[in-house]
Every structure is written in structure tokens, then in C-alpha cells.
Amino acid sequence: MNRLLALIAFLALAAFVLVLVIEVPSPDLIVVATLTIAMVAYDFVTSSGKPRG
């Protein structure tokens, strides 16, 4: 259930950033948005797996 909620939150953030990039197509903004989504995706993959310990 936690993984599903994390996925929904990730998709909501990605959709928001995508709308921002589409409305303001600045190269700097595109780079920052891409890095942001990459870091969030990395965090999603590494922290929403099986619990440790």
C-alpha cells in the first residue's frame, strides 16, 4: 500500500513538473526539472522496496 501511494505521489509530481516545462519551455528549467524527476525516481526505487531488518 505504501508503494502505491508513493507511486501516485511520484506521478502527481511528474505531471506538475511536465505542465510547468510545457508552459515555460526554458532550457534551464528543463534541465532542473529533469534532474528533479531523476532524483525523485531514484529515491522512489531505493526507498520503497522491501523493509530492512
Rank of each mutant, 00 (worst) to 15 (best):
M1K: 07
N2S: 12
N2Q: 14
R3C: 03
L4N: 10
L4W: 03
A6N: 04
A6F: 01
L7I: 05
L7P: 00
A9N: 10
F10T: 02
F10R: 02
F10S: 02
F10D: 00
F10N: 02
L11C: 07
L11F: 08
L11E: 08
A12H: 02
A12K: 01
L13A: 14
L13T: 10
A15S: 11
V17W: 00
V17A: 10
L18Y: 11
L18K: 08
V19F: 11
L20S: 04
V21K: 00
E23Q: 14
E23K: 12
P25D: 09
S26H: 13
S26A: 14
P27F: 07
I30H: 05
V31H: 09
V31W: 13
V31D: 13
V32D: 05
V32C: 06
A33V: 01
T34M: 05
L35G: 13
L35P: 01
T36P: 00
T36N: 05
I37W: 01
A38R: 00
A38E: 03
M39T: 13
A41Y: 01
A41T: 12
A41W: 01
Y42V: 14
Y42F: 15
Y42H: 15
D43H: 03
D43R: 02
D43V: 06
V45L: 10
T46N: 15
T46L: 14
T46I: 12
T46P: 01
S47Q: 15
S47L: 15
S48V: 04
S48C: 11
S48W: 03
G49E: 07
G49C: 02
K50F: 06
K50C: 05
R52F: 08
G53V: 12
G53C: 08
